[in-house]
């Protein structure tokens, strides 16, 4: 059995006296699509940033591809980041660059491909997400859904083993949201990429996930197959999945 691609061991993170994560344990196997759910402000996006190494834990270990992220030097961390990518909630495309330049940027910086080869890769990735026509547009000229798809295409250019998605369908209409979800599933199946998706939108979560985890009060309180999450036993998970206001979970969890 292959080693987990991501492993979190008792990960803690606090900003001053405010503890966001209080001992998160999580393991992600290669090829999985793990959806992490939880309340807004509960530390889900923070977990992704810990995996990317843009935040460092105050306790515990974040191991990605068998390397402890917080113990890597800058150069080794940047090398590791080549093997993963993140799709941001608001796409985070570089606004002064066209779509083509945005996608070509990691290729220019990390590979020795010729201009023609780069163009071919860029066009191929845009084709995959159905955005080939936007090649020479600026991000500001695209809708929210289009930007997300371009963000996904940018994540694919270096063909990483792991892609992290921060709220991929947030702020999108139901159809665009479904399109993004289906893209994530098809690309992951086609390329064998491991995906970790953070969301609190249940429809989206069930469409994408091969496994689900619930983050509450700074800890992972449940991980299971999607089917088990449809009829959860844990009262907090049940309340969250059913979207009820009554129950153990308060509106603003002490995250």
């Amino acid at each position: 059995m292959s080693a987990p691609i991501v492993q979190l061991n008792q990960v803690e993170l606090a900003f001053g006296n405010d503890a966001v994560l209080k001992g998160v344990d999580l393991q992600v196997e290669p090829g999985e699509r793990l959806v992490i759910m939880g309340q807004s402000g509960g530390g889900k996006s923070t977990l992704l940033r810990l995996m990317m190494g843009t935040l460092m834990p105050t306790g515990g270990e974040v191991i990605v591809k068998e390397q402890n992220v917080s113990q890597l030097n800058r150069r080794a961390l940047n090398d590791l980041r080549k093997e993963m990518a993140m799709v941001y909630q608001y796409s985070a495309l570089i606004s002064s660059m066209t779509v083509r330049e945005n996608l070509a940027l990691p290729l220019e910086e990390w590979t020795d491909l010729s201009r023609d080869e780069m163009n071919a890769v860029v066009e191929d990735k845009l084709e995959r997400v159905g955005m080939r026509k936007t090649l020479d547009k600026l991000p500001a000229e695209l809708s929210g859904g289009m930007r997300k798809r371009v963000g996904l295409a940018r994540a694919l250019v270096l063909e990483p083993a792991l892609i992290l998605f921060d709220e991929p369908s947030a702020g999108l209409d139901p159809i665009s949201s479904t399109v993004i979800d289906e893209l994530i599933v098809s690309l992951s199946e086609e390329l064998g990429t491991t995906c970790i998706i953070v969301t609190h939108e249940m429809d989206s979560a069930f469409r994408i996930a091969t496994r689900m985890a619930m983050l509450y009060n700074g800890e992972i309180i449940e991980t299971a197959e999607p089917e088990a999450f449809r009829h959860p036993k844990h009262p907090v998970v049940r309340q969250f999945v059913e979207g009820r206001t009554e129950g153990p979970m308060t509106e603003n969890a002490d995250a």
Binding site: A92, L93, I94, L105, P106, E109
Partner: peptide, 11 residues
């Protein structure tokens, strides 16, 4: 988040 994205790409 553009700066964070650049950092995330290891650039």
């Amino acid at each position: 988040e553009e700066v964070e994205a650049i950092e995330g790409m290891g650039l």
